[in-house]
Amino acid sequence: MELKQALEELNRNKFQGDLDDLLIHMLHQIGSTDPVLRDDLIYTTFGKLVIEDFLTKEQLTYLLNTCLDDEHLFYRIGERGTDSVFTRSFSVLVVALILEKDREEGFLKEDRMEVATAKCFKYLREEQDTRGYVETKGWAHSIAHGADALTEVIRHPVFEIEKIDECLEVIRACLFKKATTYVDDEDERLLFAIEGLLDQGLSEEKFSKWIELLSTELEGLFQQNGYSVDFFHIKGNVLSFMKSCYFRLIMKEDFFEVRFMIEKVVERWTRKIYG
């Protein structure tokens, strides 16, 4: 049976085939460049299978392990502008689904959670294709999808507060990727991870210092590259993230020290660049 037909049948609750076999075929085509097959059918079906308890614990673990492997999450990692990004990006999105499910039900062994955490960190550091929407092929959105998985790592009951610093470093790495201009709400998705860290105990003092460190790194980049395209792209990403963060914190009616630091940083860069 053709994959599209099988998925359509499953979503109508009329699927009669072998679920293990279907999972294999879905994973094989998880990075299809057909946006209907990839987004509307494969990913949507993964969501249905995971959330609505179609899968056993063994199947969920198999799905997680496969999505984290070198042929999925790290498939041709480092490439830019090629179709391989769809495999990586939608693999990490399925990882986020499974971690969310495990947060509710706790079926993963602790060592699997440790592996998933480490690989999510590694993926966001190493992903170089940061395109959001790709004409005719649909959403790549690698950083947004990776941020979703990072958020689930942070929200998980076994998350260790000792990893807060590493999470902040991973978010920083996303903001400072070269040749990148985020235009598809990547900053907003990264902020869900920040909110998770605040819930896990990220202190206002540490958060404020981290904001200042972003500005310091941006200054170093400016000293090195001057008024270059790369500098302006990264400055735009960093300041857009800070501005989004500022208003998110206003909505929480808290974190006045962090908000004051963001005000100082944004004003500093506005005066520096525009006088």
Rank of each mutant, 00 (worst) to 15 (best):
F74Q: 05
E114S: 15
D148Q: 08
E205K: 09
E71W: 12
K243D: 14
K235G: 04
Q200F: 10
G17N: 12
W269C: 05
L10R: 08
D70M: 11
V95T: 10
D40G: 13
I262D: 00
R125D: 13
L168S: 04
S228T: 11
L175W: 02
T216G: 04
E195H: 13
M113Y: 13
E114G: 09
M242A: 03
F107V: 11
L150V: 02
V238M: 05
A96N: 02
L168Y: 08
S84Y: 14
L37A: 07
V170G: 02
G81V: 13
Y75T: 02
Y274F: 13
S91N: 11
D254V: 03
L73Y: 11
I154T: 02
S91G: 14
S84I: 06
L108E: 04
F74S: 07
L60R: 08
V170Y: 02
D184G: 02
F247E: 03
I273E: 10
G201H: 09
L68V: 10
I273Q: 10
S203P: 07
R38S: 04
G17Q: 01
L190D: 00
R76H: 15
Q200D: 03
L49T: 03
D187P: 04
C167M: 14
T216Y: 09
E126P: 05
L23D: 04
G220N: 12
E204S: 12
E152G: 02
V153A: 08
D148G: 04
D111E: 15
E217Y: 01
H156K: 05
L239K: 01
E100L: 08
A147C: 07
M242I: 08
D18Y: 03
M26Q: 11
E9T: 12
G132H: 09
F176W: 12
G106N: 12
A179V: 09
M242L: 15
Y75C: 06
S244A: 13
D199L: 14
T180Q: 04
M113P: 00
K101T: 05
G31P: 00
R12S: 13
E257V: 11
M251D: 14
Y75K: 05
E110I: 14
G78I: 09
R38E: 06
Q16R: 15
K243V: 15
H233N: 14
H145E: 05
D165N: 15
K57P: 07
V36E: 11
Q16H: 14
C245G: 03
A118K: 14
S203A: 08
C174P: 07
E100Y: 06
D18L: 10
L10H: 05
A116M: 03
T270M: 07
V170A: 01
T181R: 15
C120K: 00
R131Y: 15
Q128Y: 14
D199F: 15
E104S: 14
E263A: 04
L202F: 06
K137A: 13
K252G: 01
G146W: 00
F255R: 01
D230A: 08
S240I: 04
E2Q: 11
S32P: 00
T45S: 10
F46G: 01
C245F: 08
Q223P: 00
K119T: 12
Y75D: 05
A96M: 10
R248L: 13
D21E: 15
M251L: 12
A173D: 12
N65S: 13
M242E: 04
G47R: 09
L202C: 10
S228L: 10
I161W: 12
N11G: 06
S91I: 05
L99Q: 06
R189P: 06
D34L: 10
N11D: 07
